[in-house]
Amino acid sequence: MGYFLFRRTLGFVLTLFAVSVVVFAVMNVLPGDPALTILGLDATEDALAALREQLGLNDPLLTRYVHWVWNALHGDFGISHSFGIPVAGLIGERLPMTISLAVSGMIFTVILALVMGIGAAANHRKPGDWGMMFISQLGIAIPAFWLSMLLVLLFAVKLRWLPPGGFAGWDDPVAAMRSLILPTVALALVQSSVLARVTRSSALEVMRQDFVRTARATGFSRRRILWRHVLPNALVPIVTIVGMQFAALVTGTIVIENVFYLPGLGRLIFQSISNRDLPTVQALVMLFAAIVVTANFIVDLLYVVIDPRLKARA
């Protein structure tokens, strides 16, 4: 067990390291001169040279990489070129928005998928099952972008039940949740449709196993067997997919935040890319990658919590 934890943690750290190298390398071989971007086309050659020196652009690549990582580990991602304030502050302001959206998307995905998937498996080869399969097929086929516009038109413009966009923070929790509903559905419908199908087939497979027959022979109702025996055993593939989906949801926030005018990291990354704001883009790309890697790390740990057989082998 200890060895397993050590191996997984080491793998996690090494992956983060590799990601940081790639992110840094890609960002720093891109054409374009940050000094020129900041000062504008009519800057003098002297001013440009001075700024390059100040930004450390004349240092060897390795030195710059080490500086970047060292500072980042201390919460310093440099100064945003376009906003002129520390990148860490920019991210800190917008992180709650993106986390709120991603987490509510994840909760929506998991709850809807488990209810639909287990419900379908319980009604295998009956109308409930077919209905769920049909709905999830639709959910997978509809593009998130188009769905967003549809949701806004129906629930915000026509029915006026929910705000069409924007987010004013968590000071007013009811308003915050209301503004999260449409973006959450738009973000997570595809993922929950996929997960519902995974849940269904995983549950059906478990239902064929001998211990389910034993449980039936012990006088348990189908419903109790479903939640007590089938669902836990169906979890391993579900958790695998959930881990990948969390990554997809986090990156999906980029599009959704732009559609719904939500002040999160997704909008920030768009703005910084169009402003060629290198430190900000670099920090954000690294952050998104780190979230994905962390999600996978957590999934690896969850396997062991779910399945005692893995603990023995780990």
Binding site: D210, F211, R213, T214, H229, P232, N233
Partner: peptide, 8 residues
């Protein structure tokens, strides 16, 4: 071998 729930 398979008659018991492996997770319980």
């Amino acid at each position: 071998m398979t008659a018991l729930n492996p997770l319980r």
